[in-house]
């Protein structure tokens, strides 16, 4: 079972925002870079599957500048068998469509794979589009926000999160999945001193975008602006009534007036 996990270097959640920053964007301070938290769940999923199966390997791939070496090494320190980085210095390619093309081309170059995993979204832009886009480019089946995986010969059964519950589907391998931060992979493992020592001695191979045959990296998506949603002013309402059913009724009708879908409540 060969699994490819894509990981992303994002800005540390704890890094303070600059005075004029609404979004940390692409900083160049190495200390502020961390592994996209959601990707750790994907690494956990990959490692669990390989451990359960008893054979195979997990390859972590990261598109980023040399700042992302830290993230690649963390993947090895978590237990990934090998890892490499696709050089994207100064964030040359950031539009998602082109990134997906590059990742798909990298998968083709790797050649042998049974599963391709992503985190459910990235911590920064959070578009959650990479897994479905890559699966389209490779013409592979896909499922998003997967909580549980069971192997079934050359197929897999996955439970994916949908609104209000989960849905079980069967996919033909190889397949592309995005892993939810809940369910079986909720607690990604830590790095360990032993694996950190190994990771620090590993030289991270670097691939060039231009040699990947990703096709034309045209800009189909353009960022015009990133802004915070405007602050909403809401009035605090206190409901008072000694009769509890009346109190609940008042609360629910107030919520209904606000436009909340209360299902069976009329």
């Amino acid at each position: 079972m060969n699994i490819i996990v894509f990981i992303k270097a994002t800005i540390d959640r704890n890094a303070p925002l600059g005075p004029d920053e609404t979004f940390p964007g692409d900083r160049d301070d190495k200390a502020d870079v961390m592994t996209n938290n959601y990707d750790k769940h994907a690494i956990e999923a990959a490692l669990q599957i390989v451990e359960k199966k008893g054979d195979g390997k997990v390859t972590a791939v990261c598109l980023g500048s040399d700042m992302a070496d830290k993230v690649v090494k963390e993947a090895i320190a978590m237990g990934c068998h090998e890892a490499f980085r696709i050089e994207n210095s100064e964030a040359r390619v950031i539009n998602f469509f082109s990134v997906a093309k590059i990742l798909a081309a990298a998968i083709k170059k790797i050649g042998t794979y049974d599963l391709i995993l992503f985190g459910m979204q990235s911590y920064d832009y959070g578009t959650a589009t990479m897994a479905p886009m890559v699966s389209e480019f490779l013409d592979l089946p896909t499922a998003s926000w997967v909580e549980r995986i069971s192997l079934n010969g050359d197929k897999i059964n996955v439970e994916k999160v949908i609104e209000g519950g989960t849905r079980t589907i069967e996919l033909q391998l190889p397949a592309v999945l995005s892993i939810a931060s809940s369910g079986d992979f909720e607690e990604p493992r830590y790095t360990s001193v032993r694996r950190i020592m190994k990771a620090s001695r590993t030289k991270v191979p670097v691939w060039e975008i231009d040699k990947l045959e990703a096709g034309a990296l045209d800009t189909n998506v353009e960022f015009t602006k990133i802004e915070q949603p405007p602050a909403r002013m809401e009035e605090c309402v206190v409901f008072k009534d000694d009769d509890v059913p009346v109190l609940i009724d008042n609360l629910l009708s107030a919520l209904k007036d606000k436009g909340l879908n209360l299902g069976a409540y009329k």
């Binding site: 200390a31 830290k70 090494k73 963390e74 320190a77 830590y190 790095t191 360990s192 001193v193 950190i196 020592m197 990771a199 620090s200 001695r201």
Partner: peptide, 30 residues
């Protein structure tokens, strides 16, 4: 970051600095 800043003033090799940082990151998280 305060610990990291002080570590940078010590005579650790580049590889050791990297190991230290990764280990401290892991301990911090735990």
């Amino acid at each position: 970051k305060q610990i990291t800043k002080i570590f940078k003033t010590f005579n650790f090799s580049k590889e050791e600095q990297e190991q230290n940082q990764m280990i401290l990151d892991m301990v911090y998280e735990l």
